[in-house]
Write a protein that binds this DNA or RNA. Structure first.
Length: 278
DNA sequence: ACTAGGTCCTGGTTGC
DNA sequence: TGCAACCAGGACCTAG
């Protein structure tokens, strides 16, 4: 499940390999994967002939700028992948949802087992924000020092929900998902069920710092190794091997040795250490 | 205004 | 061994 670091890694990869390449043919194999325009035919027709120029990320959204003022938005959700493939490669295409043939002779594949991810074509007459309304409501980018304890204090001031749920709310903070939320809470010594508004200033400073830290470390490591995640070259990242709590239910805490607990919070699993997190 | 829960989707896991 | 039921999870929608 790609979160901010994985999306950032993919965008950086694509900017190196895809810049200047042109889409010569578009094949939509699963119409559900297209969020805009309404029909796959329109999507294919509009995207055909466009050239990739810029590569940006906002939260977990990829924003790819095309020539003639157009754009392509991509959200991978759970299991989406955006991969540059050589047509000679004998890959498993069972999850291929959109195939984009390129002038370079390569193919850009959108693969997505669970079909939760979406692609948006952004015509020159509209902005990314207009085509993908959720972009307008995204919260603060939590890396590069953007997120501070003071900001968290303001965001959490009236939030009675569990801090874990607040961290996953993309309108508060954009890009944090289940893995890094659990990891940042562990590193901050905060239990995921703590009400967001009950966390003190000092802890909020630490939490802001750890969120930034854990995301940047993952970017440096090339993103997480997850069930469904690979970068744009199809190479696995390697962060997961270092996970403190995520996916480690019943295993020993790397700090104190106590068994890692897992609970459900608002429908999401949360992993934590009862001794290290108070 | 805010929060919790259901929904989508499919391969993997669990349980009978 | 075989098969059905259940599970994971991000964002969106609805209900309370």
């Amino acid at each position: 499940m790609p979160e901010l670091p994985e999306v950032e890694t993919i965008v950086r990869g694509l900017s190196k390999t895809l810049k200047g390449d042109q889409v010569t043919q578009v094949q939509v194999l699963r119409k559900d994967s297209i969020a805009y325009p309404d029909t796959p035919e329109e999507f294919a027709k509009m995207l055909k002939g466009r050239t990739f120029q810029t590569f940006d990320r906002r939260g977990k959204y990829m924003l790819l700028g095309l020539d003639a003022g157009a754009g392509l938005g991509v959200h991978l959700r759970m299991s989406g992948r955006l991969l540059v493939r050589s047509p000679k490669q004998k890959d498993d295409h069972s999850f291929l949802r959109v195939r984009m043939k390129l002038a370079s002779g390569r193919e850009l594949h959108y693969e997505d087992m669970r079909v939760f991810g979406r692609l948006w074509f952004v015509p020159k007459t509209l902005s990314f924000d207009e085509v993908i309304p959720a972009l307008q409501n995204l919260g603060v980018e939590p890396i590069n020092g953007n997120l501070t304890g003071a900001i968290l204090k303001e965001l959490f001031a009236r939030k009675t929900q569990a801090v874990k749920s607040a961290l996953l709310d993309q309108t508060l903070i954009s890009g944090v998902g289940n893995i890094y939320a659990d990891e940042a809470l562990f590193l901050s010594g905060i239990r995921p069920l703590t009400r967001a508004c009950d966390i003190t200033g000092k802890k909020l400073n630490l939490l802001a710092e750890q969120i930034d830290q854990v995301l940047c470390s993952a970017i440096k490591a090339g993103g997480s190794t997850l069930r469904d995640y690979t970068d744009s070259d199809g190479v696995n990242g390697n962060y997961q091997n270092q996970a403190w709590v995520y996916g480690r239910k019943g295993e020993e805490c790397r700090v104190c040795g106590k068994a890692i607990e897992r609970v459900k919070i608002a429908g999401r699993s949360a992993h934590f250490c009862t001794k290290c997190q108070k």
